[in-house]
Structure formats: C-alpha cells, structure tokens
C-alpha cells in the first residue's frame, strides 16, 4: 500500500511546486457609482412631473411621433420635442426614481421604478397618473443598487439616510459590484 501512496505523494509535491501561489488581484480605481443620501420623504423619491433639467448622465432613448424620451439614469426621463429637427427643445422632466428603461404605447409610458414596472399616463403632462404597476419585474434592482449593471459602487450605509440618487465617480474595486 505504502509503495503506491509514496510515489503519488512525491508526484504531487513536484507538481505543486509548479503551481503559482494564488494572489488576490490588486484593487483598482474604476468608473462607478456613489450613493447620494437624503431624507426618506425627499421629492426626488416621488414619481411626478418636474421642471426641465440638465442631461447629466444620459441614458436610453425612445422616439414616438415628434417626441423623444431620454432616461436620466436612475433619476427620471427627459421629454424632448424635436418637431423642428434643427431646434429640439426639452418640454419637461418626469421624476422616476431608479429609472433606466423607457418605452411608450400611445400616451402610456412604460418605465421602471427601481424593480417595479410602472405605466404612467402622460397624455395630460404635467399631470401624470400611475395607471398600473407590476412588482419585481427586475427583482435584482432596489433603491440600494446603482442605476447601471456591471458596475462597481460604494456600498450603501443605511445609517447615512435613504439613497435619493447616485453620482458617477471613481470607486475602488474593493467596493460592492452590481451584476
């Protein structure tokens, strides 16, 4: 028996000397997101019409008729009129916390309020009515995950308040990762 085990051990020992010692990858500083904290009743946490605002982190777009909708990543949707192709103008903004998606059928706007899919009637904008809500269509998206996937982000610290938004910043890969 020993005659079998001993050579095997010897082979293992020789082989293992070729095997590189595992080293954890060095942390890197990469593009990512940092939470912005505020009170739980902050206005940017409510769905509704808001004043025109700058496009800072421009997201996905959807076109219907002469209107163009562009997501402001994690914050809401810009409503743009481009009937005059040479002079497009912003008509307003729709605050939708956690929003990343947009599509329309007639005057019903489909978007995501964090992980829920919501349908908003925008035919009487700036009056905006929530017509329907489907819970957990994107189960992995929560107020505590950044508005983009496959990114590193500064992990949320609840003792600092509610997350009312996200800011694009350099973060270390030692932080949380959103798949």
């Amino acid at each position: 028996m020993l005659r079998i085990i001993f050579p095997c051990l010897l082979i293992l020992l020789v082989l293992s000397s070729f095997y590189p010692v595992y080293k954890a990858p060095a942390p890197e500083i990469v593009d990512g997101y940092v939470p912005i904290y505020g009170p739980a009743d902050h206005p940017s946490l409510k769905i509704g019409a808001a004043a025109v605002r700058p496009i800072v982190n421009g997201g996905k777009i959807f076109v219907i008729g002469d209107k163009l909708f562009q997501v402001e990543v994690g914050a809401g949707i810009h409503i743009i009129d481009y009937a005059d192709r040479q002079h497009p103008e912003k008509l307003g903004f729709l605050t939708v916390p956690g929003c990343t998606e947009v599509a329309l059928k007639d005057s019903m706007l489909f978007t995501n309020h964090y992980g829920d899919m919501v349908v908003l009637d925008v035919s009487k904008y700036p009056v905006v009515e929530e017509k329907s809500r489907m819970l957990n269509v994107f189960p992995e998206v929560t107020p505590e995950t950044p508005p983009e996937r496959m990114v590193y982000y500064e992990c949320v610290d609840r003792s600092k308040g509610s997350v009312i938004g996200w800011e694009k910043k350099k973060v270390s890969t030692l932080n949380c990762f959103f798949r």
């Binding site: 076109v63 219907i64 209107k67 998606e101 005057s107 489909f110 035919s123 009487k124």
Partner: peptide, 19 residues
C-alpha cells in the same frame, strides 16, 4: 402634450430591455 397618440408606434434603441 407629451406622448399624444400618433400613427407612429414608437421605437427604442438597441440597448433596451423593453420592447
């Protein structure tokens, strides 16, 4: 107003998760 019904059924981009 935004999203007034038109014969146009609308179109999204290639990065969309909704269609």
């Amino acid at each position: 107003n935004a999203g007034t019904p038109t014969p146009d059924s609308g179109k999204g981009g290639s990065l969309a998760r909704f269609t």
